[in-house]
Design a protein around this nucleic acid. Structure first.
Ligand SMILES: [Mn+2]
Ligand SMILES: [Mn+2]
Ligand SMILES: [Mn+2]
Ligand SMILES: [Mn+2]
Lengths: 223, 223
DNA sequence: GGATATATTTTGACAAATCAAAATCAACGC
DNA sequence: GCGTTGATTTTGATTTGTCAAAATATATCC
Protein backbone atom coordinates (compact mmCIF):
# COMPACT_ATOMS: atom_id res chain seq x y z
CA UNK A 1 0.00 0.00 0.00
CA UNK A 2 1.27 3.48 -0.86
CA UNK A 3 1.90 5.78 2.11
CA UNK A 4 -0.04 9.03 2.52
CA UNK A 5 2.99 11.01 1.31
CA UNK A 6 3.34 8.83 -1.80
CA UNK A 7 -0.36 9.21 -2.59
CA UNK A 8 -0.10 12.99 -2.28
CA UNK A 9 2.96 13.19 -4.54
CA UNK A 10 1.31 11.04 -7.20
CA UNK A 11 -2.02 12.89 -7.06
CA UNK A 12 -0.35 16.30 -7.44
CA UNK A 13 1.89 14.98 -10.20
CA UNK A 14 -1.25 13.88 -12.05
CA UNK A 15 -2.96 17.25 -11.62
CA UNK A 16 0.12 19.10 -12.85
CA UNK A 17 0.70 16.68 -15.73
CA UNK A 18 -2.89 17.22 -16.90
CA UNK A 19 -2.18 20.94 -17.31
CA UNK A 20 1.00 20.38 -19.31
CA UNK A 21 0.95 19.35 -22.98
CA UNK A 22 3.71 16.75 -22.79
CA UNK A 23 3.00 15.36 -19.32
CA UNK A 24 6.36 16.49 -17.98
CA UNK A 25 6.12 17.99 -14.48
CA UNK A 26 8.97 20.30 -13.36
CA UNK A 27 10.36 19.48 -9.92
CA UNK A 28 9.75 23.00 -8.65
CA UNK A 29 6.04 22.92 -9.51
CA UNK A 30 5.63 19.64 -7.70
CA UNK A 31 7.47 20.97 -4.65
CA UNK A 32 5.29 24.08 -4.60
CA UNK A 33 2.08 22.08 -4.93
CA UNK A 34 3.11 19.84 -2.02
CA UNK A 35 4.45 22.72 0.07
CA UNK A 36 7.88 21.13 0.53
CA UNK A 37 11.33 22.49 -0.30
CA UNK A 38 12.69 21.43 -3.73
CA UNK A 39 15.29 19.07 -2.28
CA UNK A 40 12.58 17.09 -0.53
CA UNK A 41 10.68 16.64 -3.78
CA UNK A 42 13.84 15.46 -5.56
CA UNK A 43 14.49 12.86 -2.86
CA UNK A 44 10.93 11.58 -2.96
CA UNK A 45 10.75 11.51 -6.75
CA UNK A 46 13.86 9.35 -6.87
CA UNK A 47 12.22 6.96 -4.41
CA UNK A 48 9.04 6.93 -6.52
CA UNK A 49 11.17 6.22 -9.60
CA UNK A 50 12.77 3.26 -7.81
CA UNK A 51 9.25 1.94 -7.17
CA UNK A 52 8.33 2.33 -10.83
CA UNK A 53 5.64 4.95 -10.15
CA UNK A 54 7.31 7.82 -12.01
CA UNK A 55 10.16 8.35 -14.46
CA UNK A 56 12.66 10.93 -13.33
CA UNK A 57 14.33 12.93 -16.08
CA UNK A 58 17.09 14.69 -14.13
CA UNK A 59 17.01 18.50 -14.34
CA UNK A 60 13.93 18.26 -16.56
CA UNK A 61 11.16 16.90 -14.40
CA UNK A 62 9.13 13.75 -13.93
CA UNK A 63 6.46 11.75 -15.68
CA UNK A 64 3.93 9.34 -14.22
CA UNK A 65 4.21 5.73 -15.31
CA UNK A 66 1.07 3.73 -16.00
CA UNK A 67 1.32 2.30 -12.47
CA UNK A 68 1.75 5.74 -10.94
CA UNK A 69 -1.14 7.16 -12.90
CA UNK A 70 -3.37 4.32 -11.76
CA UNK A 71 -2.64 5.07 -8.10
CA UNK A 72 -3.06 8.82 -8.67
CA UNK A 73 -6.43 8.39 -10.38
CA UNK A 74 -7.67 6.22 -7.54
CA UNK A 75 -6.71 8.86 -4.98
CA UNK A 76 -8.26 11.63 -7.07
CA UNK A 77 -11.45 9.61 -7.43
CA UNK A 78 -11.58 9.23 -3.66
CA UNK A 79 -10.94 12.93 -3.16
CA UNK A 80 -13.71 14.06 -5.46
CA UNK A 81 -16.28 11.48 -4.41
CA UNK A 82 -15.64 12.38 -0.77
CA UNK A 83 -16.16 16.06 -1.58
CA UNK A 84 -19.42 15.18 -3.30
CA UNK A 85 -20.54 13.14 -0.31
CA UNK A 86 -19.68 15.90 2.14
CA UNK A 87 -21.67 18.48 0.17
CA UNK A 88 -24.60 16.40 -1.09
CA UNK A 89 -25.21 14.15 1.91
CA UNK A 90 -23.69 15.90 4.91
CA UNK A 91 -24.64 19.35 3.56
CA UNK A 92 -21.26 20.83 4.29
CA UNK A 93 -20.02 24.10 2.83
CA UNK A 94 -18.33 23.57 -0.55
CA UNK A 95 -15.54 25.92 0.61
CA UNK A 96 -14.58 23.55 3.45
CA UNK A 97 -14.69 20.15 1.82
CA UNK A 98 -11.40 20.29 -0.05
CA UNK A 99 -9.41 20.36 3.18
CA UNK A 100 -11.48 17.50 4.60
CA UNK A 101 -11.06 15.39 1.47
CA UNK A 102 -7.31 15.98 1.54
CA UNK A 103 -7.22 13.71 4.61
CA UNK A 104 -10.08 11.34 3.86
CA UNK A 105 -8.74 10.43 0.39
CA UNK A 106 -6.05 8.41 2.18
CA UNK A 107 -8.34 6.66 4.67
CA UNK A 108 -11.13 5.42 2.39
CA UNK A 109 -10.86 1.85 1.13
CA UNK A 110 -11.92 0.82 -2.35
CA UNK A 111 -14.88 -1.00 -0.78
CA UNK A 112 -16.14 2.17 0.90
CA UNK A 113 -15.44 4.10 -2.29
CA UNK A 114 -17.74 1.82 -4.28
CA UNK A 115 -20.54 2.19 -1.75
CA UNK A 116 -20.20 5.97 -1.70
CA UNK A 117 -20.26 6.08 -5.48
CA UNK A 118 -23.48 4.07 -5.54
CA UNK A 119 -25.07 6.15 -2.76
CA UNK A 120 -24.32 9.33 -4.72
CA UNK A 121 -25.68 7.89 -7.98
CA UNK A 122 -22.32 7.60 -9.79
CA UNK A 123 -21.76 11.33 -10.24
CA UNK A 124 -19.55 12.53 -13.12
CA UNK A 125 -18.35 15.69 -11.38
CA UNK A 126 -17.79 16.92 -7.83
CA UNK A 127 -19.37 20.04 -6.26
CA UNK A 128 -16.77 22.28 -7.94
CA UNK A 129 -17.42 20.76 -11.36
CA UNK A 130 -14.14 18.83 -11.27
CA UNK A 131 -14.47 15.56 -13.23
CA UNK A 132 -14.44 12.37 -11.13
CA UNK A 133 -12.17 9.67 -12.57
CA UNK A 134 -14.11 6.52 -13.46
CA UNK A 135 -13.50 3.16 -11.76
CA UNK A 136 -11.83 2.04 -14.98
CA UNK A 137 -9.36 4.92 -14.73
CA UNK A 138 -10.54 7.38 -17.34
CA UNK A 139 -10.52 11.09 -16.60
CA UNK A 140 -12.60 13.56 -18.57
CA UNK A 141 -10.14 16.29 -19.46
CA UNK A 142 -12.42 18.49 -21.54
CA UNK A 143 -11.30 22.11 -21.62
CA UNK A 144 -13.81 24.95 -21.53
CA UNK A 145 -13.78 28.69 -22.01
CA UNK A 146 -13.46 30.78 -18.87
CA UNK A 147 -15.09 34.03 -17.86
CA UNK A 148 -11.78 35.65 -18.84
CA UNK A 149 -11.90 34.35 -22.40
CA UNK A 150 -15.53 33.66 -23.37
CA UNK A 151 -17.92 35.66 -25.52
CA UNK A 152 -19.65 38.65 -23.91
CA UNK A 153 -23.37 39.46 -23.72
CA UNK A 154 -24.47 35.85 -24.16
CA UNK A 155 -26.00 33.51 -21.58
CA UNK A 156 -23.46 31.02 -20.21
CA UNK A 157 -23.58 28.15 -17.78
CA UNK A 158 -20.90 27.73 -15.13
CA UNK A 159 -19.40 24.25 -15.45
CA UNK A 160 -16.40 24.33 -13.14
CA UNK A 161 -14.67 26.45 -10.51
CA UNK A 162 -10.96 25.58 -10.55
CA UNK A 163 -9.79 27.07 -7.27
CA UNK A 164 -9.88 25.11 -4.02
CA UNK A 165 -9.20 28.01 -1.68
CA UNK A 166 -11.98 28.54 0.82
CA UNK A 167 -11.91 32.32 0.37
CA UNK A 168 -12.44 32.16 -3.37
CA UNK A 169 -15.18 29.55 -3.11
CA UNK A 170 -17.00 31.58 -0.47
CA UNK A 171 -16.84 34.62 -2.75
CA UNK A 172 -18.09 32.60 -5.73
CA UNK A 173 -20.92 31.09 -3.71
CA UNK A 174 -21.98 34.53 -2.46
CA UNK A 175 -22.49 35.59 -6.10
CA UNK A 176 -24.23 32.41 -7.13
CA UNK A 177 -21.27 31.25 -9.23
CA UNK A 178 -21.51 27.47 -8.79
CA UNK A 179 -21.73 24.78 -11.45
CA UNK A 180 -25.08 24.93 -13.20
CA UNK A 181 -25.61 28.65 -12.58
CA UNK A 182 -26.40 30.93 -15.53
CA UNK A 183 -24.29 34.05 -15.96
CA UNK A 184 -23.21 36.49 -18.63
CA UNK A 185 -20.26 38.77 -19.14
CA UNK A 186 -21.49 42.35 -19.29
CA UNK A 187 -18.11 43.91 -19.89
CA UNK A 188 -14.45 43.01 -20.02
CA UNK A 189 -11.94 45.82 -19.37
CA UNK A 190 -8.50 44.43 -20.18
CA UNK A 191 -6.43 47.49 -19.20
CA UNK A 192 -8.13 47.56 -15.82
CA UNK A 193 -8.00 43.76 -15.56
CA UNK A 194 -11.69 43.66 -14.69
CA UNK A 195 -14.62 41.51 -15.77
CA UNK A 196 -18.21 42.57 -15.02
CA UNK A 197 -20.82 39.83 -14.71
CA UNK A 198 -24.56 39.63 -14.25
CA UNK A 199 -26.77 36.76 -13.18
CA UNK A 200 -30.46 36.57 -14.13
CA UNK A 201 -32.39 39.06 -11.98
CA UNK A 202 -29.13 40.02 -10.23
CA UNK A 203 -27.08 43.20 -9.94
CA UNK A 204 -23.89 43.41 -12.02
CA UNK A 205 -20.68 42.83 -10.11
CA UNK A 206 -16.98 42.81 -10.98
CA UNK A 207 -14.04 40.52 -10.39
CA UNK A 208 -10.45 40.39 -11.58
CA UNK A 209 -9.43 38.73 -14.82
CA UNK A 210 -7.35 36.29 -12.80
CA UNK A 211 -10.39 35.29 -10.74
CA UNK A 212 -12.59 35.14 -13.86
CA UNK A 213 -10.08 32.76 -15.43
CA UNK A 214 -10.78 30.23 -12.71
CA UNK A 215 -14.46 29.95 -13.63
CA UNK A 216 -15.12 27.71 -16.60
CA UNK A 217 -18.26 28.15 -18.67
CA UNK A 218 -20.16 26.61 -21.58
CA UNK A 219 -22.92 28.10 -23.77
CA UNK A 220 -26.20 27.95 -21.84
CA UNK A 221 -28.66 25.43 -23.29
CA UNK A 222 -31.54 26.90 -25.25
CA UNK A 223 -34.80 27.17 -23.29
CA UNK B 1 -2.70 17.77 16.40
CA UNK B 2 -1.95 14.24 17.63
CA UNK B 3 -0.38 11.89 15.07
CA UNK B 4 -2.13 8.71 13.98
CA UNK B 5 0.20 6.64 16.18
CA UNK B 6 -0.49 8.83 19.22
CA UNK B 7 -4.24 8.57 18.64
CA UNK B 8 -4.00 4.79 18.42
CA UNK B 9 -1.96 4.50 21.63
CA UNK B 10 -4.37 6.72 23.53
CA UNK B 11 -7.47 4.97 22.22
CA UNK B 12 -6.15 1.53 23.14
CA UNK B 13 -4.98 2.80 26.53
CA UNK B 14 -8.54 4.00 27.16
CA UNK B 15 -10.10 0.68 26.12
CA UNK B 16 -7.70 -1.24 28.37
CA UNK B 17 -8.10 1.18 31.26
CA UNK B 18 -11.89 0.75 31.10
CA UNK B 19 -11.48 -2.98 31.72
CA UNK B 20 -9.21 -2.50 34.71
CA UNK B 21 -10.50 -1.45 38.12
CA UNK B 22 -7.77 1.08 38.93
CA UNK B 23 -7.20 2.47 35.44
CA UNK B 24 -3.61 1.22 35.38
CA UNK B 25 -2.66 -0.30 32.03
CA UNK B 26 0.30 -2.72 31.98
CA UNK B 27 2.84 -1.98 29.26
CA UNK B 28 2.61 -5.50 27.84
CA UNK B 29 -1.14 -5.27 27.33
CA UNK B 30 -0.78 -1.99 25.50
CA UNK B 31 1.97 -3.41 23.31
CA UNK B 32 -0.15 -6.46 22.47
CA UNK B 33 -3.20 -4.34 21.65
CA UNK B 34 -1.13 -2.16 19.32
CA UNK B 35 0.76 -5.11 17.82
CA UNK B 36 4.17 -3.65 18.63
CA UNK B 37 7.04 -5.13 20.65
CA UNK B 38 7.11 -4.07 24.33
CA UNK B 39 10.14 -1.82 23.92
CA UNK B 40 8.31 0.22 21.32
CA UNK B 41 5.41 0.78 23.68
CA UNK B 42 7.78 1.86 26.46
CA UNK B 43 9.43 4.41 24.16
CA UNK B 44 6.12 5.80 22.99
CA UNK B 45 4.61 5.94 26.48
CA UNK B 46 7.56 7.99 27.68
CA UNK B 47 6.97 10.42 24.81
CA UNK B 48 3.26 10.57 25.65
CA UNK B 49 4.18 11.24 29.28
CA UNK B 50 6.41 14.12 28.16
CA UNK B 51 3.39 15.56 26.33
CA UNK B 52 1.22 15.23 29.43
CA UNK B 53 -1.14 12.70 27.85
CA UNK B 54 -0.33 9.80 30.17
CA UNK B 55 1.44 9.19 33.45
CA UNK B 56 4.10 6.52 33.28
CA UNK B 57 4.61 4.48 36.44
CA UNK B 58 7.80 2.59 35.61
CA UNK B 59 7.49 -1.21 35.78
CA UNK B 60 3.83 -0.82 36.76
CA UNK B 61 2.10 0.63 33.74
CA UNK B 62 0.49 3.82 32.59
CA UNK B 63 -2.56 5.92 33.28
CA UNK B 64 -4.32 8.39 31.01
CA UNK B 65 -4.32 12.01 32.16
CA UNK B 66 -7.45 14.11 31.68
CA UNK B 67 -5.91 15.51 28.48
CA UNK B 68 -5.07 12.04 27.20
CA UNK B 69 -8.51 10.72 28.03
CA UNK B 70 -10.11 13.62 26.16
CA UNK B 71 -8.17 12.81 22.99
CA UNK B 72 -8.87 9.09 23.36
CA UNK B 73 -12.62 9.62 23.78
CA UNK B 74 -12.73 11.81 20.70
CA UNK B 75 -10.99 9.13 18.63
CA UNK B 76 -13.24 6.41 20.04
CA UNK B 77 -16.32 8.51 19.26
CA UNK B 78 -15.11 8.88 15.67
CA UNK B 79 -14.41 5.15 15.42
CA UNK B 80 -17.84 4.10 16.61
CA UNK B 81 -19.81 6.75 14.73
CA UNK B 82 -17.96 5.81 11.54
CA UNK B 83 -18.81 2.15 12.10
CA UNK B 84 -22.45 3.11 12.58
CA UNK B 85 -22.40 5.17 9.39
CA UNK B 86 -20.79 2.38 7.38
CA UNK B 87 -23.41 -0.15 8.52
CA UNK B 88 -26.55 2.00 8.68
CA UNK B 89 -26.01 4.25 5.67
CA UNK B 90 -23.57 2.46 3.38
CA UNK B 91 -25.01 -0.97 4.30
CA UNK B 92 -21.62 -2.53 4.81
CA UNK B 93 -21.06 -5.83 6.59
CA UNK B 94 -20.64 -5.35 10.34
CA UNK B 95 -17.69 -7.75 10.22
CA UNK B 96 -15.74 -5.40 7.91
CA UNK B 97 -16.35 -1.99 9.41
CA UNK B 98 -13.92 -2.20 12.32
CA UNK B 99 -10.93 -2.34 9.97
CA UNK B 100 -12.31 0.57 7.94
CA UNK B 101 -12.97 2.69 11.03
CA UNK B 102 -9.45 2.01 12.29
CA UNK B 103 -8.22 4.25 9.45
CA UNK B 104 -11.10 6.69 9.17
CA UNK B 105 -11.05 7.58 12.89
CA UNK B 106 -7.84 9.52 12.17
CA UNK B 107 -9.06 11.33 9.05
CA UNK B 108 -12.45 12.62 10.20
CA UNK B 109 -12.55 16.20 11.47
CA UNK B 110 -14.75 17.27 14.37
CA UNK B 111 -16.93 19.17 11.88
CA UNK B 112 -17.58 16.02 9.84
CA UNK B 113 -18.09 14.09 13.06
CA UNK B 114 -20.89 16.42 14.14
CA UNK B 115 -22.64 16.12 10.78
CA UNK B 116 -22.38 12.33 10.83
CA UNK B 117 -23.77 12.24 14.37
CA UNK B 118 -26.77 14.33 13.29
CA UNK B 119 -27.33 12.28 10.11
CA UNK B 120 -27.38 9.09 12.20
CA UNK B 121 -29.76 10.57 14.79
CA UNK B 122 -27.26 10.78 17.68
CA UNK B 123 -26.96 7.04 18.26
CA UNK B 124 -25.96 5.79 21.72
CA UNK B 125 -24.29 2.59 20.50
CA UNK B 126 -22.57 1.34 17.37
CA UNK B 127 -23.55 -1.76 15.33
CA UNK B 128 -21.75 -4.04 17.80
CA UNK B 129 -23.53 -2.50 20.79
CA UNK B 130 -20.38 -0.63 21.86
CA UNK B 131 -21.32 2.64 23.59
CA UNK B 132 -20.49 5.83 21.65
CA UNK B 133 -18.79 8.49 23.80
CA UNK B 134 -20.84 11.69 23.98
CA UNK B 135 -19.58 15.01 22.60
CA UNK B 136 -19.11 16.10 26.21
CA UNK B 137 -16.81 13.16 26.83
CA UNK B 138 -18.88 10.75 28.85
CA UNK B 139 -18.70 7.04 28.13
CA UNK B 140 -21.38 4.63 29.25
CA UNK B 141 -19.45 1.84 30.93
CA UNK B 142 -22.36 -0.31 32.08
CA UNK B 143 -21.40 -3.95 32.53
CA UNK B 144 -23.76 -6.76 31.57
CA UNK B 145 -23.94 -10.48 32.02
CA UNK B 146 -22.60 -12.60 29.18
CA UNK B 147 -23.83 -15.82 27.64
CA UNK B 148 -21.10 -17.50 29.70
CA UNK B 149 -22.42 -16.19 33.02
CA UNK B 150 -26.14 -15.44 32.66
CA UNK B 151 -29.15 -17.40 33.85
CA UNK B 152 -30.26 -20.36 31.71
CA UNK B 153 -33.68 -21.12 30.25
CA UNK B 154 -34.81 -17.47 30.27
CA UNK B 155 -35.31 -15.12 27.34
CA UNK B 156 -32.44 -12.67 26.95
CA UNK B 157 -31.64 -9.80 24.65
CA UNK B 158 -28.20 -9.44 23.09
CA UNK B 159 -26.86 -5.97 23.92
CA UNK B 160 -23.25 -6.10 22.80
CA UNK B 161 -20.75 -8.27 20.93
CA UNK B 162 -17.28 -7.48 22.27
CA UNK B 163 -15.07 -8.99 19.60
CA UNK B 164 -13.98 -7.05 16.53
CA UNK B 165 -12.58 -9.96 14.56
CA UNK B 166 -14.34 -10.44 11.23
CA UNK B 167 -14.50 -14.22 11.68
CA UNK B 168 -16.29 -14.03 15.00
CA UNK B 169 -18.71 -11.37 13.81
CA UNK B 170 -19.55 -13.38 10.70
CA UNK B 171 -20.23 -16.41 12.89
CA UNK B 172 -22.41 -14.36 15.24
CA UNK B 173 -24.34 -12.82 12.37
CA UNK B 174 -24.95 -16.23 10.82
CA UNK B 175 -26.70 -17.28 14.05
CA UNK B 176 -28.62 -14.04 14.44
CA UNK B 177 -26.58 -12.94 17.43
CA UNK B 178 -26.59 -9.18 16.95
CA UNK B 179 -27.67 -6.46 19.37
CA UNK B 180 -31.42 -6.55 19.85
CA UNK B 181 -31.75 -10.25 19.07
CA UNK B 182 -33.54 -12.53 21.55
CA UNK B 183 -31.79 -15.70 22.67
CA UNK B 184 -31.72 -18.15 25.54
CA UNK B 185 -29.16 -20.48 27.02
CA UNK B 186 -30.43 -24.05 26.73
CA UNK B 187 -27.50 -25.66 28.46
CA UNK B 188 -24.10 -24.85 29.86
CA UNK B 189 -21.59 -27.69 30.12
CA UNK B 190 -18.62 -26.37 32.07
CA UNK B 191 -16.39 -29.47 31.85
CA UNK B 192 -16.77 -29.49 28.07
CA UNK B 193 -16.53 -25.69 27.92
CA UNK B 194 -19.68 -25.53 25.81
CA UNK B 195 -22.76 -23.33 25.83
CA UNK B 196 -25.87 -24.32 23.87
CA UNK B 197 -28.18 -21.54 22.69
CA UNK B 198 -31.54 -21.28 20.98
CA UNK B 199 -33.19 -18.36 19.23
CA UNK B 200 -36.97 -18.11 18.83
CA UNK B 201 -38.08 -20.62 16.14
CA UNK B 202 -34.43 -21.62 15.58
CA UNK B 203 -32.43 -24.81 16.04
CA UNK B 204 -30.18 -25.09 19.10
CA UNK B 205 -26.49 -24.54 18.41
CA UNK B 206 -23.33 -24.61 20.50
CA UNK B 207 -20.33 -22.34 20.98
CA UNK B 208 -17.40 -22.28 23.37
CA UNK B 209 -17.53 -20.65 26.77
CA UNK B 210 -14.84 -18.23 25.61
CA UNK B 211 -16.97 -17.19 22.63
CA UNK B 212 -20.11 -16.98 24.78
CA UNK B 213 -18.27 -14.64 27.13
CA UNK B 214 -17.95 -12.10 24.33
CA UNK B 215 -21.70 -11.77 23.92
CA UNK B 216 -23.31 -9.51 26.48
CA UNK B 217 -26.98 -9.89 27.33
CA UNK B 218 -29.74 -8.30 29.40
CA UNK B 219 -33.10 -9.75 30.49
CA UNK B 220 -35.51 -9.53 27.56
CA UNK B 221 -38.28 -7.00 28.08
CA UNK B 222 -41.65 -8.46 28.90
CA UNK B 223 -43.97 -8.71 25.90
C1' DG C 1 16.57 -15.59 51.44
C1' DG C 2 18.19 -17.02 46.96
C1' DA C 3 17.33 -18.94 42.38
C1' DT C 4 14.37 -18.51 38.66
C1' DA C 5 10.85 -16.90 35.60
C1' DT C 6 8.57 -12.92 33.59
C1' DA C 7 7.75 -8.20 32.45
C1' DT C 8 9.82 -4.06 31.38
C1' DT C 9 13.35 -0.98 29.97
C1' DT C 10 17.49 0.19 27.56
C1' DT C 11 20.50 0.29 23.68
C1' DG C 12 21.65 0.48 18.98
C1' DA C 13 19.87 0.33 14.53
C1' DC C 14 16.73 1.43 10.71
C1' DA C 15 13.10 3.46 7.31
C1' DA C 16 10.27 7.37 5.93
C1' DA C 17 9.86 12.10 5.33
C1' DT C 18 11.41 16.30 5.95
C1' DC C 19 14.58 20.91 6.10
C1' DA C 20 18.79 24.00 5.58
C1' DA C 21 22.37 25.05 3.08
C1' DA C 22 26.02 23.98 -0.17
C1' DA C 23 27.08 22.22 -4.77
C1' DT C 24 25.98 21.63 -9.46
C1' DC C 25 23.90 22.12 -13.84
C1' DA C 26 21.75 24.46 -17.79
C1' DA C 27 20.07 28.31 -20.07
C1' DC C 28 20.55 32.99 -21.36
C1' DG C 29 22.60 37.29 -22.50
C1' DC C 30 26.03 39.62 -24.53
C1' DG D 1 32.57 31.52 -25.83
C1' DC D 2 31.91 32.91 -20.89
C1' DG D 3 29.93 34.50 -16.79
C1' DT D 4 25.68 35.07 -14.37
C1' DT D 5 21.29 33.41 -12.77
C1' DG D 6 17.78 30.32 -11.44
C1' DA D 7 16.39 25.62 -10.98
C1' DT D 8 17.73 21.32 -9.31
C1' DT D 9 20.37 18.07 -6.77
C1' DT D 10 23.32 16.68 -3.07
C1' DT D 11 24.77 16.46 1.65
C1' DG D 12 24.17 16.27 6.44
C1' DA D 13 20.96 16.55 10.01
C1' DT D 14 16.37 15.90 12.45
C1' DT D 15 11.84 13.78 13.88
C1' DT D 16 8.75 9.95 14.35
C1' DG D 17 7.91 5.33 14.96
C1' DT D 18 9.53 0.97 14.75
C1' DC D 19 12.41 -3.74 15.80
C1' DA D 20 16.01 -6.97 17.84
C1' DA D 21 18.39 -8.17 21.47
C1' DA D 22 20.69 -7.26 25.78
C1' DA D 23 20.13 -5.53 30.47
C1' DT D 24 17.45 -4.96 34.49
C1' DA D 25 13.91 -5.05 37.87
C1' DT D 26 10.14 -7.57 40.06
C1' DA D 27 7.49 -11.49 41.49
C1' DT D 28 7.32 -16.19 42.84
C1' DC D 29 8.46 -20.47 44.63
C1' DC D 30 10.57 -23.37 47.44
MN1 LIG E 1 -4.06 14.32 0.64
MN1 LIG F 1 -13.17 19.54 -6.01
MN1 LIG G 1 -6.71 3.56 14.27
MN1 LIG H 1 -17.64 -1.38 17.27
Amino acid sequence: MATIAVENYLKHALLLAERSPDGLVPMGELATALEVVPGTATTMVKALADSGLVVHEPRRGLRLTAAGRRVALNVLRKHRLVETFLVNVLKMDWAQVHAEAEQLEHAISDAVLDRLDALLGHPATDPHGDPIPSVEGTLNSAVYATLATCATEVALRVVRVTDQSADFLTFAEAHGLRPGAVVQVVDRNLPAGLVTLRRPRGKPFALSLAAAGRIWVAPAEAG
